[in-house]
């Protein structure tokens, strides 16, 4: 990385989205969406099903391209400087993407290979991240033998192996029991506090939000409100996030 680009990296927000629009066969899935996520910030993206969260994630990860607006990761345009941008991105998709018949270690090794890490570095990073998620002692087990919560932890560890600046989580707690969910929510918030990671977390579960989090509420492809939890409550003159969410997604004007 050149000096110029590393400077750019330091100054820019981990993720910045400007004026992003996208439609499927004429139906608008995203309408002029703009927001940014800074490092050491956990931003919760809240919205009912069909709000455009998944489309947004598909655009950030470049499953599709948008012709309107732009997305930058640490100052790198995902369309023009794709590889520089993707190096800084860690993702946990909604559906599990682990190979069930391979061991935890083999799954992670595959990822380090894709990231071009040397064997030595890979070994070291895998140990660090698995230990952080309390999964290191289970590294030789097949993924099939792990429960849903543990699989998720492995996926979060995997997403962090190449030390990304931004971690995207697409409804990672769907289908998990309460203790597993809580432990993942805690782990991720801990990462933000300890590592200075920027996190964008899509969910429709309100109890996953911490008071210090940033909040974006989306509905029908538009950002209805964004800001810290307190700001959002103030703007919507609501007593709770639940109330704010209901107001914004049931058509009441703010």
């Amino acid at each position: 990385m050149s000096i110029q680009s590393s400077q750019r990296n330091e100054q820019a927000a981990a993720l910045s989205i400007e004026d992003l629009s996208f439609s499927y066969s004429g139906r608008k899935a995203l309408d002029k969406v703009s927001f940014s996520v800074k490092s050491s910030e956990c931003t919760i993206l809240l919205g009912p099903n069909g709000a455009g969260k998944s489309t947004l994630f598909s655009l950030i990860t470049r499953l599709y391209d948008s012709h309107h607006g732009n997305i930058q990761l640490c100052g790198f345009d995902v369309k023009k400087e794709t590889r520089n941008a993707l190096t800084r991105l860690g993702v946990v998709f909604q559906q599990t993407t682990l190979d069930l018949d391979l061991t935890v270690m083999q799954n992670l090794r595959y990822h380090t290979a894709l990231q071009g890490m040397s064997r030595k570095l890979a070994k070291q990073r895998i140990q660090q991240e698995l230990e952080r998620m309390c999964m290191y002692e289970r590294r030789s087990e097949k993924v099939r033998q792990l429960n849903g919560g543990h699989r998720r932890r492995v996926e979060i560890a995997r997403a962090l192996l190449h030390k990304p600046a931004l971690l995207l989580l697409d409804e990672p707690t769907t289908g998990l029991d309460v203790p597993s969910r809580q432990s993942i929510v805690e782990h991720v918030h801990q990462l933000v506090a300890d590592q200075g990671l920027a996190v964008l977390w899509a969910t429709h579960l309100i109890d996953e939000i911490y008071p210090q989090d940033q909040l974006i509420i989306m509905h029908k492809g538009q950002v209805r409100v964004k800001g810290s939890v307190d700001e959002v409550l103030k703007i919507t003159s609501s007593a709770s996030i639940n109330e704010a969410f209901r107001r914004l997604t049931q058509g009441e004007n703010v």
Binding site: T61, R83, F93, Q94, T96, T97, L98, L114, Q115
Partner: peptide, 13 residues
Amino acid sequence: MGSMRILMVCPLP
């Protein structure tokens, strides 16, 4: 199932 997406987000052409 999504594992194709893991491949597609890795920083290679």
